[in-house]
Design a protein around this nucleic acid. Structure first.
Length: 456
DNA sequence: TGAAATGTTGGGGCG
DNA sequence: ACGCCCCAACATTTC
């Protein structure tokens, strides 16, 4: 019995129900399709880098049997079925709108072929969006009740499966090549990530172990300090499923209970909530969740947007964050909130532009998390930060990067500024190769409050 | 998962 | 000893 195993967003052997069940009683043909025909929004450059390396690692784990193809999913699958005597097609259950479209096409196509069974499994989420509803059968729009009442009182998530013990491969004579997918940018922008990130399933496991051994019991407080190392950095691995959230969840259940553990679990809950929102309200991918914001007058100032992107705003914490992003493909969570608040509230630039930049640069760029988080920051989302919550980058800097350790890592021009003035380098008397603040902070805050008050 | 403005309290200096 | 002012520290309200 020959089965086709389609990999998509879960590029791993551990806790992969799709692979596990397929390899139980058949020879498999593992395949990855980069569907550039039915795609609404192409992956960002950083995501492509991560995907490329994840696929390379997965291929290695699969005895170099992984088949790489590019094009229309349904067509490719049909061709393979015919030429390889395939009786079963296994794939993961989709939750993003675009993936659902591709999935439904495939399902329709396969239903017209005799003797081919289509099997799919949730490999991506702890709780499926359709299972979590309010008593009136409508979706939650607020995180806390969604998570506490909706998720935590439901049955526990599916326990993780082990890697398949033994995989029989269909003899395919694989002549495809990962490089044919053209995922690596020609300007070698992503090359610098090689020394910073190890992209593989085993690295993901190590990262989790390291986090659970050394950091989790400092997580609740420590996660706020960008210079310290108390957050997991698992997000890029979770994005393409190099590690399963079910695996992580069950590892957490084994730990001594604490607020730190609960807090980390709730962060996985935020990921669930983002998928959930995008599933039930897919219009929010490019429209304000709260329609009253549609009349908001955003500024279209490319020069200002460029200063933000390049980390030359003159506000050290903002600049450090934006440069961290460019250099490492990652940004500390607290700093993400600060730079987002700055762009949307102080510069009055549409959250979609910031979202787009993050989409391109973040190794963990995830459609649902990125959209939902930007709408949260902008105040336009479900259960969003209220419009009057404006982060003061100077205060945030003083509170969470007291010694300026994080700032100096990415903004070395400020090295000779004494640490007391590091958060406000414009107060420093000596000459600096660092820009003056691009805006008057207090005034931009006033403006933001005024503009937001119109749409209240 | 803020910040700033405003209000309250209480200790110390001082006439 | 007392009242008054100042102001830091904390609490509450407002944006």
């Amino acid at each position: 019995m020959n089965s086709l195993v389609l990999f998509k967003n879960n590029l791993r052997l551990d806790d992969n129900p799709v692979l596990f069940h397929a390899s139980e009683n058949s020879s498999i043909l593992p395949i990855y399709i980069y569907d550039n025909v039915n795609i609404e929004r192409d992956l960002g450059a950083a995501s492509k880098y991560w995907l490329h390396n994840s696929l390379r690692s997965l291929n290695k784990s699969l005895d170099n049997r992984l088949v790489f193809l590019k094009g229309d999913t349904s067509k490719i699958v049909c061709d393979l079925i015919k030429s390889n005597n395939i009786y079963k097609v296994y794939c993961e259950k989709p939750f993003h709108e675009n993936d659902i479209k591709i999935f439904n096409n495939l399902k329709n196509t396969l239903s017209k072929i005799n003797n081919v069974e289509f099997l799919f499994f949730n490999t991506t989420l702890l709780w499926e969006p359709t299972d979590i509803l309010k008593n009136d059968n409508t979706p939650y729009k607020v995180f806390t009740p969604f998570y506490r009442k909706g998720c935590l009182t439901k049955t526990e998530p599916r326990p993780p499966l082990n890697s398949p013990k033994n995989i029989e491969y269909l003899d395919y004579g694989n002549k495809t090549n990962l490089d044919d997918l053209d995922l690596i940018d020609k300007y070698n922008w992503s090359e610098k990530f090689n020394s910073l990130w190890s992209v593989s399933e085993s690295s993901a496991k190590n990262k989790l172990k390291d986090f659970l051994d050394n950091s989790i019991y400092n997580y609740k407080k420590g996660r706020d300090f960008p210079a310290s190392d108390f957050n997991s950095k698992l997000s890029p691995y979770i994005r393409f499923g190099l590690i399963s959230v079910n695996r992580i969840w069950y590892e957490l259940l084994n730990l001594k209970p604490s607020n730190d553990v609960d807090h980390f679990k709730s962060e996985l809950g935020w990921r669930e909530f983002s998928y959930y929102l995008l599933y039930h309200f897919s219009f929010m991918k490019n429209k304000n969740f709260q329609k009253k914001f549609d009349n908001f007058q955003w500024e279209f100032n490319d020069d200002m947007f460029d200063l933000w992107k390049k980390g030359k705003t003159g506000f050290p914490l903002v600049d450090a964050g934006m440069r961290e992003l460019w250099k490492t493909g990652y940004m500390h969570n607290r700093v993400r909130m600060v730079v987002a608040s700055f762009l949307v509230k102080n510069l009055s630039i549409d959250w979609k532009r910031g979202e787009d930049w993050f989409w391109d640069c973040l190794l963990d760029a995830d459609h649902a998390s990125n959209i939902a988080s930007w709408q949260w920051a902008a105040g336009t989302g479900a259960d969003a930060a209220p419009y009057f919550r404006i982060f003061n980058p100077i205060l945030q800097s003083k509170k969470f990067d007291v010694e300026g350790e994080y700032i100096l890592k990415y903004v070395p021009e400020l090295k000779k500024v004494p640490s007391t003035l590091l958060h406000e380098p414009w107060e420093y008397e000596g000459g600096l190769d660092y820009p003056k603040p691009m805006i008057d902070y207090r005034q931009s805050r006033e403006n933001a409050l005024l503009k937001y008050s119109f749409i209240k």
